[in-house]
Design a protein around this nucleic acid. Structure first.
Lengths: 238, 238
DNA sequence: CCAAAAGTGTTAGGCCTACACCCATGA
DNA sequence: TCATGGGTGTAGGCCTAACACTTTTGG
């Protein structure tokens, strides 16, 4: 087969096998010692009244990650966004209107207020406690749980917990985050020791304010340290 | 917005944003103490003469994993196939003929002979040593390296090494496989101890044959043990 | 002075690592 | 008998996990 044959054959296949393609975002926010997920009301039969992940079809002029960012920034107004691709779902029958293949991302956002809003189409957008989720539309239950598992795995393997907290935080807040997300208990002293030994935190001069007890020191994540340590082959753990 | 509006709006979007979609497989085979990868000659400009991963456009009637299996079984004749989705690539300009989004899988196959063959189109299909790869077409270099990294990670986290070996193997063969794939050295005694403590191997009565030294015992992977241990929350490591 | 969370060290056990010699077999 | 890889045990260090009391602040 020569090159021009192969071009036309490939063109034909590309035409024949086109599918709709979307990205879906599992958006995690942390607040009041709960892990929350942002969902949108679904009004496609047969899922009317169910909730679904935030997603959209990909546009011609954007890469996958850009599409995911677009979806995110369309619904959240946040300081920083951490995005990571998880997995792609394309079962023939996963969408009632025909074949749609979707790539799922999980994202971590720093939220201060968990207020419900609406999409431009008037659909409700609402934060749900991850431990108290409604049934979801499409195969979004499956997508959500693998994203949650992935989040838990990543949280153990690298320092992404900071992405869910304000820029400055106490060690107890961080530990609590780990406990909530991983659904485990952590020893206070061991956790402090561990984190200090990792050298990923910069101590600030500031203290917690307006707390009815001894105020804790505030820390920041030291991004430079992290980069240099990782490039030296170091390994984060728990 | 009511339901029928939303149906027609979604339909319109699905029509407007259709893309070509493919799966690509990074096929790993192990032999002669080398990790090998199966590649196919590419004859699409501007990549003529380069090599590329094996892949194909997805068909209407198949799920993603089925498509990957189809690609695999089209080019390999093997005992067992281990398939795992890795990541999805969809940059606008990754394909010269237009937008193609592709989901990458890595797969482990038990190969006995690494003979070169041809596709039905007459393109060469050839095994390459993973440490001595040619430059690849499209973004396949990037895909391949993330699949290789993923393989290394998975190999440390769960017992998949067996998938690359014959059903019965010696502990030294297994250790060598780990050394080659992970590009590290492992202590013979520590490795044996570790693997025995994991209780994932069934000792057979058989011994190696036709070796010019003391023959080693042959082991099999104990799949039942693995399932029951994992469901008890146990954890594989190295 | 009371409540509430911050902050702080030590010890025991398990796990990983490093290491060297004899054994069984085929040529 | 020689060459080749098979097979085996022990000791030290490191990391982890368990555990309780004093300190600081606000009310």
């Amino acid at each position: 087969m020569n090159a021009s044959d192969s071009i036309s054959q490939t063109r034909a296949a590309m035409d024949e096998y086109r599918v709709a393609f979307s990205v879906d975002c599992v958006i995690f926010g942390y607040g009041k010692e709960k892990l929350n997920i942002l969902l949108v009301e679904c009004n496609l039969p047969p899922y009317i009244g169910k909730w679904s992940l935030l997603g959209d079809f990909i546009r011609d002029d954007e890469d996958l990650d850009s599409a995911a960012h677009r979806v995110l920034s369309g619904y959240t107004h946040v300081n920083s966004i951490y995005l990571e691709q998880v997995s792609t779902y394309g079962n023939r029958c996963r969408h009632p209107l025909g074949r749609v293949i979707t790539t799922a991302y999980y994202s971590l956002v720093q939220v201060t207020t968990f207020e419900d809003t609406y999409t431009s189409d008037g659909l409700r957008v609402k934060w749900f406690d991850v431990d108290d989720l409604p049934g979801l539309a499409f195969d979004h239950d499956e997508i959500l749980s693998s994203c949650y598992e992935r989040l838990q795995k990543c949280l153990r393997e690298r320092p992404i917990g900071f992405e869910l907290l304000p820029k400055e935080f106490t060690l107890s807040q961080l530990r609590r985050l780990y406990e909530v997300v991983l659904n485990i208990e952590l020893d206070k002293r061991n956790f402090r020791r561990k984190l200090k030994s990792l050298n990923l935190l910069k101590e600030t001069e500031k203290l917690q304010e307006d707390v009815p007890h001894r105020p804790a020191k505030l820390f920041k994540f030291d991004h430079k340290q992290y980069i240099s340590q990782m490039s030296n082959g170091l390994h984060f753990e728990l």
